[in-house]
């Protein structure tokens, strides 16, 4: 390549030697900050790993159990003499459906109230705090309290999932309303429509398609979560799964996990399809 520069008298390549070294400039230019971050992360990692007490003897003992668990998947055993698995699955499904319906029914007024362009200030603040409250704690913690209050069983799970749905759905609904086209809303208002007519004609058509998609998505989430609320006593497949693990019935547990994965896959596919169809 050196010959090219010689053959090019017009360029400045002649007589100048170019640097033969190049280093990529670092992402963080300030060296103190850069090394500080690296060092800080290293120290954190060392501390975190150092303070993690692991009972290696117990881990070693458990390995055959892990092996047995994995072996239970190959092949999975769906023959279930007492029908507990299917009972649990169905209970979870019904729980998820009714929680989704109730949650959405409740979140429509909350969502309307939590939209700043729609509601008066005090309603807005009240609704926003409902949303924030139900979003802060995971469904499982809600479920623990629901179990304490309503007793064991699917009703507690239903309450926990409904509250979770309100936080999720009302927030998205409110955001959607706040982002909608203001000109369309104004046009309807200009016709002299009442508040309900206005919501029905100007807002509902704009937010409806997305909300239908989201409700299927939430049904999917509620089904998955129903497996978890059961572990703390909220009924459904989670309770079955918990019992199976308590009794070391790995065959049943593996079957339940595979069924959950299958149903979630179907729901995910269905919600994607429905969302495409609605829009």
């Amino acid at each position: 390549m050196s010959d090219t520069s010689a053959a090019n008298p017009g360029s400045s390549g002649v007589g100048i030697t170019y640097p033969a070294k190049w280093k990529k400039p670092p992402l963080i230019t300030n060296p103190t900050l850069r090394w500080g971050l690296i060092l800080g992360f290293a120290i954190y990692l060392a501390l975190a790993l150092g303070t993690m007490d692991v009972n290696w003897g117990r881990v070693w003992e458990g390995l055959p159990r892990g092996q047995r668990f994995i072996a239970a998947f190959f092949p999975p055993d769906f023959s279930d003499s007492r029908n507990v698995v299917w009972d649990g699955i169905l209970e979870s499904m019904w729980m998820a459906i009714i929680a989704t319906v109730a949650g959405i029914a409740l979140s429509v007024p909350v969502g309307l109230g939590a939209a700043s362009n729609l509601a008066p200030k005090w309603v807005y603040l009240a609704c926003r705090s409902i949303v924030a409250g139900s979003r802060t704690f995971p469904e499982v913690i809600l479920a623990i309290f629901a179990v304490k209050l309503f007793g064991f069983g699917p009703f507690a799970g239903f309450i926990a999932l409904s509250i979770g749905t309100i936080g999720f759905f009302a927030k998205l609904l409110a955001e959607d309303i706040e982002n909608m086209s203001a000109s369309q809303a104004e046009a309807i208002k200009a016709t002299g429509a009442s508040w309900f007519q206005w919501v029905n004609y100007a807002i509902q058509p704009q937010v409806m398609p997305r909300m239908i998609g989201l409700s299927v998505y939430r049904l999917d989430i509620n089904f998955r979560e129903s497996a978890v609320v059961g572990i703390v006593g909220g009924g459904g497949i989670g309770a079955t799964l918990n019992t199976a693990f308590d009794r070391y019935e790995f065959d049943t547990a593996a079957a339940i996990l595979l069924i959950i994965i299958g149903i979630v896959m179907v729901l995910e596919y269905a919600s994607g399809y429905l969302r495409k169809w609605v829009q």
């Binding site: 390549m1 520069s5 360029s11 400045s12 390549g13 100048i16 030697t17 170019y18 640097p19 033969a20 070294k21 190049w22």
Partner: peptide, 9 residues
């Protein structure tokens, strides 16, 4: 690297 600098120049 030298060639790259030369071309950029």
């Amino acid at each position: 690297i030298q060639e790259a600098y030369r071309l950029l120049d």
